[in-house]
Design a protein around this nucleic acid. Structure first.
Lengths: 241, 241
DNA sequence: AATATATTTCTTGTCGACACATAAAATACA
DNA sequence: TGTATTTTATGTGTCGACAAGAAATATATT
């Protein structure tokens, strides 16, 4: 399972790793792998193993793990190994609540504070998303979707909302990944339309409409995740009969 | 200025510091000092100096600083000394906005989800606050105020809101500290009354009232900070004439 | 004298090693 | 056979040291 993952991220021989690139590469790589579920939720993360894998000392690994712990992507058990943060289904209601609120607030603020340049950048992600849908590249869809909404939050220019929202979007990315097998071809089109309306409202500086669409969009996503979970339950439930 | 601060946090000789208490003591102490403005915003934080001061290696100091950086209390300049996060007045509008929203959301949720035990604990902080007001202990007032609202957020039981709110409350603590000289004796009583109404609404599970009081309370605090800043400007403005 | 270059200094980023704490394994005991 | 205790093993927490990078100082050059 992790046999081939060893050594594939080792710096190429002869490369000169700049001072301080150790932590960032470890952090970025691990974050990506956690979000894409290449590292399974709950699985242990061995510092020593990572240090050999990344070809660096344990110190930068350690610092990267602390950052990941602060992002909520990893849980540190004192004196014992740290593990990839589990997907806690009991906390899903909190997640839905916060996600919906942040969708609304960031989209509202974007409609208020956007610059023209930011609208252009948001539209770029929207076309990227459309391409991913056309290509049926689910992985890319999930990633671009995250960037799309993150860009909207940035146009809102509230540092606190941006950080929380990014975190929620990452968590959502893990959830969607977890259930991406049940993705059917209908839903992406709904998202695409909602995104379009959202961009238009932001461009028109129509705060109330932006708010309404954001709420609608959030509800849509929450319903989707919930339906995934129901489907999942049904599969496991078969055994009981 | 920092002459007497050296060595006052060194572990007593002969004490056996448990494994892992290094980072937490450094983290807690530094956090406290930053929030109380004993460490001035923008001032450099030297790892080596701290390691001698706390009587431990640079490694745990480093890890504590990374955590503080993630809390936004410290800014790390690559290959350069890290500094205590400056109070950025340009970001105050964002801060007001987020603080108000979090006041409302957490108080709403507390009214919805509180247990009886939590109401008791919230009331405890309320009486502590009253005592601090009676004793005119501004420092304690600011600290207890933070715990009071943090406890309300905890009663709301949304992890994401709790974390963001705690961070905002800490930032607010620094701001209040910065201007605490202008504290007059009228305002604390207003807060006390509002807190009382807030607890009653939470106890009665009256979500709408809780929301209204929270907004009112947030506006009150924002106005206070703003008036402080206006007074501050006026002082500096005199030079221009 | 002013600018450009070399040197020194100082702090961070990284390393390898060691000691401690916890879990798992092995043993003793009822 | 099941439970309590000791032993081993594995991985973390901490340390001291070294090297790289940037600012500050000194030196050289026009």
């Amino acid at each position: 399972m992790d046999a081939d993952s060893k050594g594939n991220a080792v710096e190429a021989a002869g490369a000169k790793p700049r001072r301080g690139h150790g932590v960032s590469t470890a952090y970025d790589t691990l974050k990506q792998e956690i979000l894409e579920l290449k590292l399974r939720p709950g699985s242990p993360v061995d510092e020593t193993e990572l240090s050999t894998r990344f070809g660096m000392s344990r110190t930068p690994i350690r610092e990267a793990l602390i950052k990941l712990a602060n992002d909520g992507l990893v849980v540190t058990l004192p004196n014992r190994s740290t593990i990839v943060a589990p997907l806690d289904f009991l906390e899903l209601p909190s997640f839905y609540d916060a996600l919906t609120l942040m969708y609304r607030v960031t989209t509202r603020l974007a409609a208020q504070n956007r610059t023209d340049a930011e609208v252009v950048r948001i539209r770029k992600f929207q076309t990227d998303y459309a391409e991913a849908v056309a290509a049926k590249d689910v992985s890319r869809m999930i990633e671009v979707n995250r960037h799309f909404h993150s860009m909207i939050a940035r146009a809102g220019k509230n540092r606190y909302y941006i950080e929380l929202f990014d975190r929620l979007l990452d968590e959502g990315r893990r959830l969607l990944r977890f259930y991406y097998s049940s993705f059917n071809d209908e839903l992406p089109q709904v998202y695409l339309d909602e995104h379009e309306k959202m961009v238009c409202a932001i461009e028109a500086r129509d705060v109330e409409t932006a708010d309404r669409i954001a709420k609608q969009h959030a509800d849509q996503i929450v319903r989707q995740i919930q339906s995934y979970i129901v489907d999942d339950r049904r599969l496991n439930g078969d055994i009981a009969f």
